[in-house]
Design a protein around this nucleic acid. Structure first.
Ligand SMILES: [Mn+2]
Ligand SMILES: [Mn+2]
Ligand SMILES: [Zn+2]
Ligand SMILES: [Zn+2]
Lengths: 137, 137
DNA sequence: GCTCTATTTAGAGTTTTTCTAATCTGTTGA
DNA sequence: TCAACAGATTAGAAAAACTCTAAATAGAGC
């Protein structure tokens, strides 16, 4: 049985110019092996600790930002003083349940515009983000 | 010439159950006498200082939150670790120019949906927020 | 004016995130 | 195989934004 030295995640990291270290591989596993997720740095750090992965909070922050820059994650800001990192990097939007701070994906094609304004002079649209704030009734 | 003891702003504050103190009146003047604005607490505190209005940063935060609760302001979150307070409380959206952290209003009727998803079971839509992120080209 | 309560404030505290600089580790290639 | 080097990790300090506490101050009603 031959060894398989290049798993897909190792490839992804190398492509992004990031060494596949123990810490980055463990965090990638936690992030990407469980479907679409929205996590904060602290949450991920707790998960790592619970999974007996020793990694510092500084490394969790570094890794989340490096993954975001590499396009493996997307940062979502909906609450003052708290960043979520989204493993779904496709074009999509969010429900935000203010009561418990949960984000839920809205597929990109579930939203369609009948009218959108022109961007200000000298600028171009980077991304249109829709946040649907909902409350429990 | 008769005195005019009840200016509209005094009325607004009283209606909100807030005493029209020197600090609140001064901040209200800075906020509402200059058209639609998007300010952070620190910005407003600097403006007050520049205008020789002595007010603590704690009071600026208290006042911004009280005004928001009273419906005189709206809080806008587009950047990690920083809240904007918006003097435009009508139904509208925002351009966000990431380069310099500026917000620009999009009138509510400049955006129209052809399709919007149903909210998750057991919730109802509170508000739909559109943030159009733009870059200088 | 007196009294009562709301408000303000300085300064300490909290929370989230970033920085620093020392140590460690993955990679390369001799 | 291993030395050398650059990249990565880390603990702990620091920064940034915001909140809290408790003492002082000031509107409001009488
Ligand atoms: Mn967090
Ligand atoms: Mn600020
Ligand atoms: Zn998402
Ligand atoms: Zn606005």
């Amino acid at each position: 049985m031959e060894a398989r030295p290049f798993t897909p995640m190792v490839q992804k990291l190398r492509t992004a110019g990031l060494r596949p270290t123990r810490q980055r591989m463990s965090l990638a596993k936690l992030l990407f092996d469980a479907g679409d997720r929205h996590v904060t740095a602290e949450q991920l750090h707790h998960e790592a600790t619970a999974a007996r992965v020793r990694v510092s909070l500084a490394t969790v922050y570094n890794t989340l930002h490096q993954f975001t820059t590499a396009g493996l994650l997307r940062e979502v800001v909906v609450q003052p003083g708290r960043s979520y990192f989204d493993t779904n990097t496709t074009d999509h939007h969010h429900f935000f349940i203010e009561a418990n701070g949960h984000l839920e994906d809205i597929p990109g094609d579930s939203v369609a515009w009948a009218r959108l304004p022109e961007p200000p002079k000298g600028t171009r649209i980077e991304r249109v983000e829709v946040i649907v704030r909902v409350t429990r009734d």
